[in-house]
Design a binder for these strands. Structure first.
Length: 269
DNA sequence: AGCTCATGGCGAG
DNA sequence: TCGCCCTGAGCTG
């Protein structure tokens, strides 16, 4: 599930469950035991999401940096926490809640400098109020890479993953293979605005849901969805099925090491 | 039970 | 661009 909306939700959830109070931190299995010991008993002062990176800020100017990667998950629940099943990299507990982190690609302790170093490498995040889409535009408008590849580059835009990439390009009717430098400013502004709207909705709902109301399931009599990531989508993982808008077969192709999905008829601009 | 694939990203070459 | 890391769900048999 981890695109940017998931991480922003987690930042809010960690703050809600543990914020402002000392927490118990442990690493029942795995290599983070030393890091967990250092924040054990410290107060969770703030949490922050930037793109797909989660930062948990503890007293003592220590940050726990988490990246879920493709497989990472957080399970939040009410205490008493069950005995850990499988590898739990970080368990936080306190005030009636517990949170288990499994399978992250990163879980490490950083100081302020380490955190800033990571954030300096990240492009603007559509979910952050301080995001400046101009920074992304400068890179995109000078690049010969495809807009599909550019949207997935976390140094250019952060938080967008394979689902939002496919869906925003569909919604804007953009041919995913166009070079970044061929995009007009207005086209980029529209893509950015749609990312902001879609990802905010993702945070609110806890899933990626991109289908507009006029394209309701009943109206389209669409075939059943084939994946289970939880929301309604136009093209992501719908290869071979009919486009919800025009009926043309949705296409897929590996592009820059990731599966790209698009409608060849709706996305010609 | 075993295989494949997945919403990600890193380092080697 | 490739291989690899990591977990879990959904198939197949």
């Amino acid at each position: 599930m981890p695109e940017g909306h998931t991480i922003h939700r987690l930042a809010a959830e960690y703050a809600r469950c543990f914020g402002g109070r000392p927490v118990r931190a442990s690493s029942p299995q795995g290599p983070f035991a030393a890091g967990a010991a250092l924040v054990d008993g410290q107060t969770l002062e703030r949490t922050e999401a930037h793109g797909k990176h989660l930062f948990l800020g503890f007293s003592g100017r220590r940050w726990v940096h988490v990246h879920l990667g493709l497989y990472g998950k957080v399970h939040l629940g009410q205490e008493p926490a069950p005995a850990p099943v499988g590898q739990v990299r970080l368990r936080l507990a306190g005030d009636g809640h517990y949170a288990d982190l499994r399978g992250p690609s990163r879980c490490e302790l950083l100081d302020e400098g380490g955190k800033q170093k990571i954030q300096a490498r990240l492009g603007p995040d559509p979910l952050r109020p301080d995001a400046d889409p101009n920074l992304a535009w400068r890179r995109i408008s000078a690049s010969r890479k495809s807009v599909a590849a550019l949207l997935m580059d976390q140094q250019i835009v952060s938080g967008v993953g394979n689902v939002y990439r496919a869906e925003v390009l569909f919604r804007q009717g953009t041919d995913p293979f166009r070079e970044g430098r061929s995009l007009g400013r207005a086209e980029w502004d529209a893509l950015w605005a749609d990312l902001v709207a879609l990802m905010r909705e993702g945070v609110r709902l806890g899933r990626i849901d991109t289908v507009r109301p006029q394209h309701t399931p009943e109206a389209m009599r669409r075939p059943p969805r084939v994946d289970d990531h939880g929301g309604e989508v136009y093209v992501y993982r719908r290869a071979g099925l009919g486009c919800h808008v025009c009926g043309t077969e949705v296409r897929t192709e590996e592009h820059a090491a990731r599966n790209l999905f698009w409608c060849p008829r709706c996305q010609q601009r």
